[in-house]
Design a protein around this nucleic acid. Structure first.
Lengths: 205, 205
DNA sequence: ACCTTACTTGACCGATCGGTCAGGTTCTGC
DNA sequence: GCAGAACCTGACCGATCGGTCAAGTAAGGT
């Protein structure tokens, strides 16, 4: 092999073992569920031994924590940015864009959390995500929001999480181009959340 | 005890052991997942032994089948009724009402299927439900439906399933009255599916 | 009384679960 | 060359998994 190649690879560094395991575990958690995924499966899928997984991560729960944390951090940033921004349609629009970016980038993480949070209570990373979702809901809906407003929020969140993961599997067999999905998501979510926004721009009650 | 009570109980018959087990299993499958739920858990929660569960149901998969089948049967009836009905806004409206009834009555079954179908492929009841969902999607969206139309359908389906189960858990701590939820769902889902309906009433292209 | 049927159970099976541990390999700094 | 860290692994642990089996019990028909 010629020595011309760089010590740090040219464009992208190959993923570390930890990264591979995180990615593999995420895929399994999202499709089979945390309880239904064994460390052996993760190890086999990633091409390592079970012992190796437990060398890199203290426990199965710790692995879940490391897998979900980046998504939660990102969501926290987005929410804080929206809270700090002045009220108005422009801030609202940027938030929806940020949120759609988040959906597309962390679809598996969101799907994992959304569908299993109830059964995983007590795990630190899950509880942290839980309070974040509540804060997100309260921020968008305010305290006096109607049942319909809350259902709008829930449908937008859960529906997007579902559509981007499970839905794609057997509904859109032929996957649509990414920007087409992004634009469609933008239209539908904006439309879903629009009535909720109306209440937001005026002080409640 | 006075013998005045009827041989077949007056208003409602107490549930059979099989019914209790089905209900208990459904709750566990929906919240922890099929793979994550053990027969022991189901037996303990229902107050029986694991052996008793396996006496009433041939296997864990058979139990899942019996749990989900009523929901699938019902969805099949609703879809067939819509397909056989004349095209038009009235049929469409009735379908949405039927569908919301279905959502409210079989929320746990739908949630179970929606979020685990991918990992349970090969199990007869799951495959049957899968083709039914595809048929539902094709019926509502037709062949030439845009990505946005399909995303609308996916968000309505997945969003409702999520909101009615997981969402209620930590978003609407204080549960709203049933008819309020029904009306809100009706508004939001009708709104979501409305643009898709437009394409339906005219022959495509 | 007796047999049958429906139902429930504990003991048990091989396999797999999450997790520990000691040992082996490879690479680095000295 | 050598110590030490980083990494990877097979063997092993007690517990639990889905599932089988024989025994036991209660009710009903004869």
């Amino acid at each position: 092999m010629p020595p011309e190649s760089s010590p740090t690879p040219p464009a992208l560094t190959r993923p570390s073992t930890g990264d591979e395991l995180r990615a593999t575990a995420l895929a399994q958690f999202a499709s089979i569920g945390f309880a239904g995924t064994s460390l052996q499966q993760i190890a086999d899928a990633a091409g390592y031994s079970k012992s190796s997984v437990l060398y890199h991560f203290a426990s199965k729960e710790a692995l879940l924590g490391e897998v979900l944390t980046p998504a939660i951090d990102r969501l926290e940033v987005i929410l804080n940015r929206y809270v700090d921004a002045p009220d108005g349609a422009a801030s609202r629009r940027r938030f929806v864009d940020d949120f759609i970016d988040f959906l597309l980038e962390f679809r598996l993480e969101l799907h994992t959390f959304i569908n299993q949070a109830q059964s995983l209570r007590g795990i630190p990373v899950i509880d942290r995500a839980g309070v974040l979702i509540v804060r997100l809901s309260d921020t968008l809906c305010h305290d006096g929001a109607s049942t319909e407003d809350r259902i709008r929020f829930g449908i937008a969140l859960g529906g997007a999480a579902y559509t981007l993961v499970a839905g794609m599997t057997f509904l859109d067999k032929d996957i649509a181009p990414a920007d087409e999905i992004r634009q469609a998501l933008s239209v539908v979510i904006t439309e879903l959340l629009a009535p909720v926004a109306v209440h937001t721009s005026q002080s409640r009650k």
